[in-house]
């Protein structure tokens, strides 16, 4: 896939497998009011991801924030075929965790390496969240 591959390990919060291009932000994202569930676009004013689509992406975020309605937004994205293919958090929060589980989106957190140090926008990421330990493969320059 690219020039360099890295393998990271983390905690499985929501099970599953997903592959996609990395979409990275060091700023937490509120799915409720921050992502349009009918288009998949980030709409939060002033957010570095504003205007990007989350569809099929591997989102790399510190954590979620905001209203518990955010769980339903993740679920609605998945019914509409607009869900991210996986989520990587520094530390998962309950709103995104519950949303990811009901929507079937794999979510891993607490990686052994700071994901912001090694993952950049556009890297191709594979997330294998099965069992208790999740594996994240990073293909640079993908």
């Amino acid at each position: 896939m690219g020039l360099l591959s890295l393998e990271l390990r983390g905690r499985v919060v929501s099970k599953g497998r997903g592959v996609g291009e990395a979409l990275v932000s060091k700023k937490p994202l509120s799915f409720f009011g921050g992502v349009n569930p009918k288009t998949g676009l980030v709409i939060e004013e002033g957010h570095s991801l504003k205007g990007y689509s989350v569809k099929g992406k591997v989102l790399v975020l510190p954590r979620g924030k905001g209203s518990t309605v955010g769980s339903w937004v993740l679920y609605e994205l998945s019914i509409n075929g607009l869900a991210p293919s996986a989520i990587i958090n520094l530390e998962a929060d309950p709103i995104v965790a519950v949303g990811a589980i009901i929507a079937g989106i794999p979510l891993v957190d607490k990686l052994n390496v700071d994901p912001f140090e090694v993952i950049e926008n556009g890297d191709m990421i594979e997330v294998m969240a099965e069992g208790r330990v999740g594996v994240v493969r990073v293909h640079k320059g993908g």
């Binding site: 919060v13 929501s14 965790a97 589980i101």
Partner: peptide, 12 residues
């Protein structure tokens, strides 16, 4: 599914 949610919350 309920257990998966509760285990995730418990871990967090």
């Amino acid at each position: 599914l309920a257990m998966e949610i509760l285990v995730a919350l418990g871990d967090i």
